[in-house]
Amino acid sequence: MMDLSSINPVVLVAALMVAATPILLAAIGELVVEKAGVLNLGVEGMMITGAVTGFAFAVTSGNPYLGMVAAATGGALLALIFALLTQYLMANQVATGLALTLFGLGFSALLGQGYSGVSPPRTPRLDFGWLAEIPVLGPIVFRHDPLVYVSIIIVAAVWWFLRYSRAGRILRAVGENHDAAHALGYRVRMVRVAAIAFGGACAGLGGAYLSLIRVPQWTEGMTAGAGWIALALVVFASWRPWRALLGAYLFGGIVTLQLTLQAAGWRIPVEYLAMAPYLVTIVVLVVISSGRARRTLAAPGSLGRPFHAAG
């Protein structure tokens, strides 16, 4: 028998923010990449590489923050392979992104040997003192680990960057029409390589959040499609940072609710409940890509198209 009264909404909201943070980080990175006109399908591969490098560095050094830096670096390095292949060797972006994911999954399994079953050093929550004691608001807003706040700051920074900074406008120009941007003298490739590296760093950080804070443990293939869900999230967000945040938290809510229902002993078998995040993502993709919503999608004009400056 299921006991719904055991579900505490405050705990649920606090938990959904934790569940949302890894895909939010990955999605905000990919959003910048796609705004620059590049489609990197390797998010899953970069995330899991970040998860394992972060875990390994954190365990070896005993410092979770060092692990997070390593994860971002690892994700960015893997992304630079993608940048080299697609921007300089003119490889197909879809195929290269897939290669990144396949390679990342294998590479992480290789690096992660000997780390399964190990506990990472704990990441302490930020101490807000009396603020954390406020009823309802305290547990939701003031009792998280630093990375939850960092992810929100990154979203805000990306929003500001894309909207108000000169560099952000150049990046958008490159993504909307790379030929025009090139003609204006902007360095299309450089902008894109930088965006790709940033996307990789964010995905790596998202992966580290999984292995260091959310789970916290290393298991092979632990991202379980989170990278792909992040890609879907960018579409859901119509390439707008704050909508990515909203989407990630909605999604986090579904994941948390599904886990809570499992724990509360709902009669549907675990396997079917566990399908929910993927099915919901598909349904959302359908709703957002069809009908009236479609016109407001506003995908960057040069998304996924290769750029080769003639002459």
Binding site: L89, A95, L98, L102, F103, L105, G106, F107, A109, L110
Partner: peptide, 22 residues
């Protein structure tokens, strides 16, 4: 040899292929 090494091997193959396609 770890089983994951072969997965890495297969992934590298695709990388090299895509790079050389240029």
């Amino acid at each position: 040899l770890p089983s994951a090494a072969i997965q890495v091997f297969q992934g590298m193959l695709l990388f090299f292929l895509l790079a050389l396609d240029m």
